[in-house]
């Protein structure tokens, strides 16, 4: 049963120290900024964060990093023009980094959500990112064995949710949200507004409610922030 919250603090309650947290978004599109801000206030630390980037500017994920809460980043593209927070921590040796090709990052989470034990992937064969990994030739092509990435928690941004937890997204803000929603034990989605059950066309639902545990309704929460 999905719970709908209007208070960001309640939406992120109970996230434990040492958790692996999947954070959606590509750049700022789909970035669950209000949930991340609430997680900073909630105080969980020693986190492993899985996200495509490692923070932009000084807000959102960058603020979580700046607060010293993240032990390890798993991402495809940490280095950006505005990733100074991560860059500083990395160069000071204060954060671990695992770089994963972007599609492999998505597929490892898809595998976690789909009950796949591991998969052979052609990406990164012969490159430094395949070093130390098991490889296999199948039908004349070489593959690298990749393992799932499972989250304790996923924080994602969607466009609209209903009271059961069904989600729809908007344009390229969809990005990692649907995959991360399947891959975590506890999935928390922030949405721009919540509609009554039955108001979303079932044919357009992208993330079915079975994957969603908590929803933060930003339309109700914004006044309280």
């Amino acid at each position: 049963m999905t719970a709908v919250f209007t208070d960001p603090e309640e939406a992120v309650a109970g996230i434990a120290d040492g958790s692996t947290v999947l954070i959606g978004g590509f750049g700022m599109a789909g970035m669950p900024v209000q949930l991340i801000d609430a997680l900073i206030r909630q105080g969980a630390t020693d986190l492993t964060v899985v996200s495509n980037n490692a923070g932009n500017g000084d807000t959102g994920l960058a603020a979580l990093l700046a607060a010293g809460r993240v032990r390890k980043m798993i991402c495809s593209f940490p280095r950006q023009s505005d990733s100074w927070v991560f860059d500083g921590l990395y160069r000071a040796g204060k954060i671990e980094l695992e770089v994963v090709p972007q599609g492999t990052l998505a597929e490892r989470m898809r595998a976690a959500g789909a009950g796949i034990g591991a998969f052979y992937c052609p990406t990164a064969v012969g490159t430094p990112l395949a070093e130390g990994k098991e490889t296999r030739t199948i039908d004349g092509r070489d593959y690298v064995l990749e393992y799932p990435i499972k989250g304790d928690v996923a924080l994602i941004g969607a466009h609209v949710g209903d009271r059961m937890g069904n989600l729809v997204y908007r344009k390229t803000a969809r990005n990692f949200g649907p995959v991360m929603a399947t891959a975590a034990a506890l999935t928390i989605a922030q949405v721009h507004h919540v509609v009554e059950t039955g108001e979303l066309d079932p044919e357009t639902v992208v993330t079915p409610c079975i994957y969603v545990d908590r929803i933060l309704d930003l339309s109700a929460a914004e006044g309280s922030l």
């Binding site: 495809s76 593209f77 940490p78 280095r79 950006q80 991560f86 860059d87 990395y90 160069r91 980094l97 770089v99 994963v100 090709p101 972007q102 599609g103 492999t104 052609p122 990406t123 990164a124 064969v125 012969g126 490159t127 430094p128 990112l129």
Partner: peptide, 26 residues
Amino acid sequence: GDLANWHTGAPDAIPAVGGAMDLATG
């Protein structure tokens, strides 16, 4: 036809691959 386009290998460079390997392979 081997491609190198994601990392200079410089010791102080922060590695960032994005979708380059997936595109090259796929």
